[in-house]
Design a protein around this nucleic acid. Structure first.
Lengths: 212, 212
DNA sequence: GTAAAAATTTGACATATGTCAATGATAATG
DNA sequence: CATTATCATTGACATATGTCAAATTTTTAC
């Protein structure tokens, strides 16, 4: 109950509302690599990530994972499936131990959807998701690998420096080989330098590669 | 004003609400091939498609159009850009003459967002868009061309029969050549027959290609 | 500090799909 | 009906990116 009060999503609820919400929800702990839900599964709960990190991915025809997004607390996860009453469109997996609030969706719908503040929060969340998906489309369909990498270097330089290349490659849905080759190319062109962290030497040239 | 009353989105508004909405919106007509908005443009209005057909697409690095979705009346178009206050993520173009209701978004936000019924409609719309985007991702990233085509034949057989192959190819973001080759392949395998309309001979084999 | 494991780089090759060009088939127009 | 114009098919080739394997480097663990 105290946990629920701290969720920005529900923080505006009054005592009665909190109690009702508490009655239809449970908190569940997960370990790293545990699956919150599989692509294709029927949703019964609304999941609110309280703690830990969840990665969302689809699986392609060859069985490779296509990374879509990484969720940090506190966020709703795949609420689309609840609202549209469709199977989960992707798989959600914990990358470290964490916790979710599982809310019985049917009961939530009955009791809470008249609440304007909650509606507003849901709108925010959905719009955010839509933005994410739109970016996925841009990154995966519109951009070449080179452009994807250039964009990532410019926009996530810090993160790049802190991660192994294999990890970066998987975030970008590329093979480590492609990433490696592209990075050496960028180094040869003197767009970047890498020693103990990324240094961008020719920002404009990098940006040019993905912006239009 | 009468037009507004007929929009399901706003049909629940009372007289006063309708009047206020009417004051902040205008109806604009468009011809075929006219652009409603360009990718990257700053949104000022919420667009409600009242009449006509609008196709939404992105442009890739080579200047090719990547088809995302076709809107039929009555629908909100790219409201994401309004809600998130970001540039339009894609271009919207009329494929035939039509009409939109342009609502001054700032003013709408100030005056209407407390309305629970409207919020609910917006949630519905956003969730629908999210579903569309999720399908785009599935189609474009997860499936091979062959699978895309198989899926389209199974799910849109009627439409397939009524369209030229060039048109189908562009809906699927494929070249006509690839479509043609794949179709001949399916015919050779006796999955389909085409004479004066599509006939699916081996549904299971086709479905097998894209379902997992 | 050494051994084992993991990550990176590089080369050779595979593959799906696009591009271009030529030809044949259909449809549209006067 | 004849003539364009559009569409479909086919082949040869290009290209980006993945796959596999080997060599090298870096990191981790004892």
């Amino acid at each position: 109950m105290n946990r629920i009060k701290e969720i920005p999503f529900f923080s505006h609820l009054d005592k009665n509302g909190l109690k009702k919400l508490n009655d239809i929800s449970t908190i569940k702990k997960y370990n790293s690599k545990e699956i919150l839900f599989f692509e294709g599964e029927e949703p019964k709960h609304l999941h609110v990530l309280l703690d830990g990190v969840v990665r969302l991915y689809k699986t392609n025809h060859k069985g490779n994972q296509i990374f879509l997004h990484q969720f940090l607390p506190v966020s709703l996860i795949a609420e689309l499936a609840n609202f549209e009453n469709i199977p989960y469109p992707a798989t959600a997996e914990f990358t470290c131990r964490g916790e979710v609030l599982r809310v019985d969706y049917k009961k939530l719908e009955e009791g809470f959807f008249k609440n304007p503040e909650l509606s507003f929060q849901i709108i925010k969340s959905l719009a955010g998701k839509l933005k994410i998906m739109s970016e996925v489309v841009t990154n995966e369909i519109v951009l070449t690998s080179e452009a994807k990498i250039a964009k990532f270097l410019v926009e996530n330089g810090e993160l790049f420096s802190s991660l192994k290349n294999t990890k970066v490659a998987s975030l970008l849905n590329l093979t480590p080989e492609t990433l490696s080759r592209t990075l050496t190319k960028f180094k040869k062109q003197e767009f970047i330098r890498i020693d103990d962290g990324l240094e961008i030497l020719k920002l404009d040239d990098l940006v040019e590669m993905y912006a239009n």
